[in-house]
């Protein structure tokens, strides 16, 4: 198998997902098949090829650094699961 259940569990942890044992086994099998398929790319010699990460060339667009107020605080907080009216509230960190 291309990817072990232990590796799937490790990657799931990195991705902040909690997978059941059943699902870890199922994903290991499915992802193994997909990765085998992806290994097809190894057939191609790409030693001197510059990677293409985006179809557009102008990736760093500059603009004037001007402060702008697009949204009101109360609007931005409207979708928050928990807020005190001024901040997003999360479980205690320290």
């Amino acid at each position: 198998m291309k990817i072990s259940p232990e590796e799937v569990a490790k990657v799931a942890k990195l991705a902040r997902l909690d997978l059941s044992q059943d699902k870890i086994g199922q994903y290991a099998e499915q992802l193994g098949g997909i990765l085998d398929y992806m290994d097809k790319l190894a057939e191609l010699d790409t030693a001197d090829v510059e990677p293409m990460y985006t179809p557009v060339d102008h990736v760093s667009v500059m603009r004037d650094d001007v402060a702008r107020k697009d949204y009101a605080r109360e609007d931005i907080l409207k979708n928050a699961p928990e807020t005190d009216g001024a901040f997003f509230i999360v479980p205690r960190i320290v």
Binding site: M38, L41, A42, L44, T46, V49, E50, P51, M52, Y53, P55
Partner: peptide
């Protein structure tokens, strides 16, 4: 390198 970078290289060849 084996997957993501490789795929980005093949992407340029496809283009």
């Amino acid at each position: 390198d084996a997957y993501y970078r490789k795929a980005a290289q093949v992407r340029r060849l496809i283009r």
